[in-house]
Structure formats: structure tokens, C-alpha cells
Write a protein that binds this DNA or RNA. Sequence first.
DNA 1: ATATTTGCCTAACGAACGTTAGTTTATAAG
DNA 2: CTTATAAACTAACGTTCGTTAGGCAAATAT
Lengths: 191, 191
Amino acid sequence: MTERKREILAASQNVLKEKGYAATSVRDIAKALSMEPASLYSHFKSKEDILKITCFDMADKLELGIAEVNDIYFNAEEKLRIAINLHVKVLTQNLNSAMIFIRDWRNLTGKSLDQFILKRNAYEAGFREIVQTGINEGIFNETDKKFAALTILSSVNWIVEWYKEDGSLSSEQIATKLSDFILSGLKKDTV
Amino acid sequence: MTERKREILAASQNVLKEKGYAATSVRDIAKALSMEPASLYSHFKSKEDILKITCFDMADKLELGIAEVNDIYFNAEEKLRIAINLHVKVLTQNLNSAMIFIRDWRNLTGKSLDQFILKRNAYEAGFREIVQTGINEGIFNETDKKFAALTILSSVNWIVEWYKEDGSLSSEQIATKLSDFILSGLKKDTV
DNA sequence: ATATTTGCCTAACGAACGTTAGTTTATAAG
DNA sequence: CTTATAAACTAACGTTCGTTAGGCAAATAT
């Protein structure tokens, strides 16, 4: 990916995050770049191409995080904290992409959509696995694994709706707070 | 609202929830109703009208719930449980509308959008108030109120993404599980 | 110096969009 | 039997959509 392509991609994402993929036209994107709509096609082969690259880039970044966690041995609580921390970091450091990734992936079509759903399911399974580890270790409450994983991801994903880069909380602080919140819901009372 | 209008509205929502508001055309909706696109305009004055009615209906239903909770006296834990229960119930019993309400409200324009945001903020403030009550009563941990309210709403709202009417969990069970999860994150350890 | 590539342009295509105007048909009321 | 109303229709409007074709100028490579 050339420098220029990356530049155009970033600008596109900045427009797409505002109104959403479907409500944003190629002409909107071109306008933000002060160029003609047709010129975008020197860099991307379609509008959906931009969405596809954005969604899969994010998916790859998140995947990398969870792989890292499962590679080295930690106990479940550490694993979950690290996974949440990485997830929050990826989202907050790529806020535009994250909003598109979370909100607009449904607009993918055909094979791209199928492949995306596979990746998404695999990632969720990774979280379920961590929860399962915690149950096995006897430190998490017996709980509906699928339910717990979904609830974790939902609270974590929602931050893209309210996180502001200039806000009072750093990505690190948010991750810690969220981890505390979630872990207190999972951990057995050890007093 | 006539019987027929309600019927068309429900069918419209069933189409809109699939692809989202912006990606769904008036012709898509008409097709699902086996009628001509123009015929829809005998009932609704615009496409956005359908979105507006959907979003504000949901907002009203939720508002009603939180008013109910604050009217009668409960302690904070009870209040939060009831509020979450009502919220989950409204979402799961109006699943199509709920998805549109949560995902597509940004496509509102002008005064409708402004008014919607006001309602939304007021509702969030209601949750913050409950959290504050809990802190005052000394049963919730001192915590970032805004953060807690947002996290609560995020985990609750996300259920529209995975809730299936024929699933193993009833709306009541989901509400209870979510409440347990959230309250264990808020409550002080009472040994 | 010449050839190639890159990045953008102008112009326009056909398709799909939301919406309007005017009309017909079915149902019910006077 | 006539009239009023509701709900659908046909036809088309102007606009916007994503995209393609083809060309031109500047930068880069040979």
C-alpha cells in the first residue's frame, strides 16, 4: 500500500465514520479529499473495497492481540485483562476504523461477508476460551460462557460510541476500569 | 394510527432491521409488502418518517420505564434491577424496532435528530442518577458515574445483536443475568 | 532522451434513488 | 343510487448513485 493510498484511506474512514458506510457516497469522500470521485478509482477498485480493507485490517489487528495472549501462559484473570487491554487499545488507537468495523461490516457482500463472519466468530471463541479457562481454574463463577463473552465484547465495543480522544480517560485507564468491572462480575468472592 | 398503517410499519421495520436504514430502499420495503413504492406514501409522508416513528416509539417506551422506576421508592439495587429488566423487556419484545432504534438513529436529520439526542441524553441521565443513588446509599463503589452508566447501557443494548426469540434464554433470564453481572461490578464487597 | 508509471482529470454511462401527480378501485355512508 | 373516503395503482420527475473510458501532465525509471 502506497503512502498516498494510505492517506486516502484514512481520509475516507474519517468521512465514513460520520454518516456510516451506506449513507456516505463516493462523492462525499472525494469532496473531503478535494479530488474528483473518479480519481478514487486509481487507488481502490470499488467503494466496498474501502470497507473491506477497513474491516479486515481491524479484524487482523484484533486477531493478533488474542493470539499473543494465548501464546504465552497466563492465568485466566491475567489473560482476560490483557485481552481487554489490547482490544481497547486497538479500538481507541484506530477510532475511525473501529467505528466502521463495528457498525458497518454488515454492508460487506458475498465472500467478503462470509469470511468476515468467520473471523468474527473465531475472535469471540477466543474470549469464550479465556472464560472457560477461568472456570476450569476455579476462579470464575460457573456461567453461561457464550453469554459472558458476548457481554464482555459488547461493553468493550461500545466505547467507540462515546470515547473521545481528548477525554479525561486514557485508553489504558478505560481498559483497567472495564477489566475491573467485568472481572468483578466473573470472579468468585474470595473473601 | 390505522390498523393498516401499523401493519405496514411492522413490515417496514422487518425489512429495515436486515440491511439497515440507509441501505434499504423504499422499493425494498414495498416489495416486501407486495405493493408499489408510491403506495407507501398514502401512509407515510417520507422514508425518514418511518425511521422517526420507529425511533421515537422506542424512546417513549423506554422513557416510560425509567419514569416508573423513579416514581416509586426503591433502594438503588432494586431500582437498577427493575430499570435493566424493563429495558431488556422493551428491547426483546420489539426486536426489529430496537435494532433500528439503536443502530440507525443517526440517519435522522434536522429537528428530529436534535430532539432524539435530547431524549437519549435524558435517559442516560436516568441511569446515572440510579448509580448516584447507590453511591449515596453507600452500597455502590465510588465510580465514574458516566462511565458506569454507559457501560451498563452498552452491555444491555448489545443484546439486540445476538438475542434470538427462540433462544434458550427468556427476556427475564437475560435481564437477571445482566443485572447480576452489572451489580457485582458496582456493589461493594459485603463479605 | 525516451519510455513508463502514477495520479489526477473531464465526461458520461446506466441504474437506482426518493418522491409527486393524477387516476382507478373498493368499501362504506347518506 | 349517489357520494365520500381510503388505499392502492401507473407513470414519471429530477437527482444521485457507483463506476468506466479515455486523456493529460508530472514524476520516475531505463
